[in-house]
Design a protein around this nucleic acid. Sequence first.
DNA 1: GAGCTTTCGCTACGAGTCGTAGCGTAACTG
DNA 2: CAGTTACGCTACGACTCGTAGCGAAAGCTC
Lengths: 219, 219
Amino acid sequence: MRPDMVNGMQCRSQAARTGRPRSAAADAAILEATRTALVELGWSKLTLGYVATLAGVAKTTLYRRWAGKNELVVDAVAELFDELELPDRGSLAADIEGVVLQFAAILDRPEAKTALMAVVAESTRDEPLRERIRTSIVDRQKRLVTEGRARAQARGELPPEADPGSADRTAALIFDVVAGAVVHRTLVSAEPADEEWVRSFTRVLLVGLTGAAADGAGP
Amino acid sequence: MRPDMVNGMQCRSQAARTGRPRSAAADAAILEATRTALVELGWSKLTLGYVATLAGVAKTTLYRRWAGKNELVVDAVAELFDELELPDRGSLAADIEGVVLQFAAILDRPEAKTALMAVVAESTRDEPLRERIRTSIVDRQKRLVTEGRARAQARGELPPEADPGSADRTAALIFDVVAGAVVHRTLVSAEPADEEWVRSFTRVLLVGLTGAAADGAGP
DNA sequence: GAGCTTTCGCTACGAGTCGTAGCGTAACTG
DNA sequence: CAGTTACGCTACGACTCGTAGCGAAAGCTC
């Protein structure tokens, strides 16, 4: 198989300007059909054959573009996170609440519920897949953390970082706490991350960050 | 554990003391073989036929005891969480760090990595499976939160709760934050939840809890 | 236009897994 | 002993997988 696929993989490096181009409409139809199939069947019962039928393309077309089910679903779900953005609500607390609510809304969709954890589980034994998830899903979320953090520091709501290494570690910690809590609440506890919960969570996080930072460099 | 309802199938309700009993050794061998197979193959490539061969039993025996792959793996992984307990290290911070490190150690095993998220993903479309995960895995962790919280309140490190409803919500929040953060750190960020990380996380959480509680009811 | 290149839809195929049924035997009970 | 249940084993149809091969279609370059 030729690994010159689209959607994340460097499609047709540069010398392949000739020949019939791949249908962009087919791409959109396939990803849309994948999400529909995820809602109808869930991750485990989803087959590429059914996705192909649903999208109105041949099964072989799917295999020409994606290496397998994992990669296809990652791309299909990644589009759901395109709408994530950092609103400016005036305060750090309000910004956090806004982002968390957006994230919770995406996670509440059935296609995201069933697919996200499944591909993460697969990625534990598939390093390229984890890299794909990271670049197309995780990093996009993580950027919101660093941006919101920088904005809060500009506002004076958070103290500036001493050294960049510490800043990176703190950003990673915040990200794991926020994303992990919302995911766990939604998928494991199976209860809604509604406004009340998000408010409580934000208060704990915010107090923990400002207070802990005020504690100094640490023990 | 009850000897006949281990797998959740209503095999012998109560008045079935006659006939050949099920081999307890086979149960242990099957669950052990399941974990071995998870390490060797991962969740997606694990087949019940291979587990049966590994355990030295017939494939039909597996289907007689478990409804399918999901239930089997849940039981196999649930045993990993038996070692979880709440150490008394003298302070709330040290207690939290101890429990989180235990949890992280379990999550660091390859069989837990690949299986936990997979069954959670499946449970989003399978309510009985979610209930099984809840009772055999999640609730066991959650109990540690309530116990540690009660102990900290007895020590005076945390203020007592106003009403029990608020206490339940707070415990649920803490649980989602702790478990979610560790899981996300380990599986999504794919970085170790080592002592340094756990210390930073505990400081944020602890300051967030005590400070937020000191804030009063809040807006 | 002609010619080349690549994609597309379609069919077919071997390989592998699934979950079940049937049968004879083994183990425990009263 | 008879009765009951679990076990090992074999075999089966149904399904999915991923690939190969074919002719046709859609672009680009000349």
